[in-house]
Design a protein around this nucleic acid. Sequence first.
RNA 1: GGGGCUGUAGCUCAGUUGGUUAGAGUGCCUGCCUGUCACGCAGGAGGUCGCGAGUUCGAGUCUCGUCAGCCUCGCCA
Length: 597
Amino acid sequence: MDNTRLTKLKTNWCGNLSAKDAGKQVSIAGWVSTIRDLGGIVFVEVRDRTGIVQIVSDPVKNPDVHKIFEQLKDEFVIHVTGTVTLRPAETNNPNLLTGEIEIYPDKVEILNESKLPPFIINDDQDINEDLRLKYRYLDIRRPKVQNKLLLRHLITSEIRSYLNKKEFIEVETPVLIKTTPEGARDYLVPSRVHPSKFYALPQSPQIFKQLLMVGGIERYYQIARCFRDEDLRADRQPEFTQVDIEMSFVDQEDIIDVIEGLLTKSFKMAGIDVSAPFPRITHKESMETYGSDRPDTRFDLKLIDVSDIMENSGFAAFADQVKSGGTVRAICVPDISGYSRKEMDDIRNLVVSYGAKGLAWITYYPDGTIKSPVLKHLTEQEIGQIQQRAHANPGDVVFFVADKANVVFDALGRLRLHFGSKLNLIDLSKHNLLWVVDFPMFEWNEECQRHVAVHHPFTSPHPEDVTYLETDPLKCRAQAYDIVYNGNELGGGSIRIHNPEFQQKVFEILGLSKEEIKEKFGFMIEAFKYGTPPHGGIALGLDRLIALVSCTASIRDVIAFPKNSQAKCLMTDSPAVASEDQLKELHIKLMPEKNSK
RNA sequence: GGGGCUGUAGCUCAGUUGGUUAGAGUGCCUGCCUGUCACGCAGGAGGUCGCGAGUUCGAGUCUCGUCAGCCUCGCCA
């Protein structure tokens, strides 16, 4: 920000003044941050977006100005015209960027008064989040919050500039769209013009960006708002922002190349150096090694396959799992042989809450003894084999889960993360970006008794696996890829299907009837019949990206006006009831029991 | 829908085994103070202990219910 006049009231930002401005006549404006009244002389700190500058009022030198000073309270909005003056050397404040100077005012004007705020506007105290959200506009005055919004702006600008240079064009897609099956729950918007019909808010601009490819845009991006009506988490809001990208005439390598450049630049804006190419891991390897499709590779504690040892062991619970197509995996946790029975039970309960039927373990004590609830089922040789394969040292505990593979991976993967953080195994100085590639096309959904798309229904299968579509869909890999940062999914994408028959086929595997396909996606199948280029893309979660690079646990901290965990806006008190007239126009009748609140 | 944690002054929190008038820091108000920068000093105001019931001679403290907030499981192509 330069020092040319900003507005009629303001020649300079508060935080940018320095010794080299000494002697200048300036006008500044901002909020009263602190008042220090020494009886005669009064110091007032004025804050704006850039920082703080000290104003000095001397009752002898300028009694008129001093009268106004005596009326000031915290958060009053004031305008000050005066001379930037070097402080007496011994009164410099090295903690303040403007600590070498202060302003002697010729004129002070109160532009607006302020009620006493419900909390003090500074960075020092942690305020309850619900109070901060109710008075979010005051919270945003805190430098800590402003800095996050500023970083978000800088990264978003950098992303736009990077993509613009690569000849992408930003195209806006509609927010009122058609509800689609698959995926998250849609937010519905009733149509006034068409009784009993509804728009949906987009979960992502997916279909539109593909149709932009049919439209010959070739390189599209959008900083797009997306909506999903699911329960919230620290990293999930009902509306959130995606960096949405789609390209024509590409393969997976082209997309990865673009994103590695984009992320390198984005991380740079946050002061984090990462270098491309990022490592890659297949989905299969990631699941088998880390028990997750978004592995945190900042620490080891890898999963170990002990199925072969257990298959013929005397421990029927494990052996039977292996014989019936399941698996037994283990992790070896260092130096926890001192855990009490209760601590082990807590860990078992944890694993059970992750979906495992149970947890077994072998404890290798430092004195060489071995204890285990399942010891009597295993031979000495088997225990030795396990110790060797797990590289278990004295003091370590090896945990086992036996079940179907996906249950085992999930439970042990979460247990791995639990110990990773509990035992401080995570190297916090690392910034591990990696690609997870070769996701499966489908997984079996027990609840719906059908195949569901792991990525989404427009994902192209891996060329080598196309034959599995007919024979064994679960074996079919997709041309889908996720970008993972320190165990967090930053985004994901795929090469899309551009052949209408192929797309039709995949919809059928997903259990959609011909009628449903025609009704829900007919326009898309039709579009694909008019010369659709091969295309693919990716979407990055912008909120999550900003939160992670600014070391914030919750994406609420990087969204100006977030919802709380109950999906309410505490400031505006939304959602709110609609009037009878509004509902009538929309042809909506409320169900009585839901109408009470 | 399930589980866990939390709720005491404007704000951040302490409050022992159930026991007299519920505390601290900070903010606020008043007074003093001319180089402070978390200014200092002195004094003062400020409480439905989230809400409701119960146990008890007596509940901030124990029990049950309820509301709110955060985290999490399910859910989130």
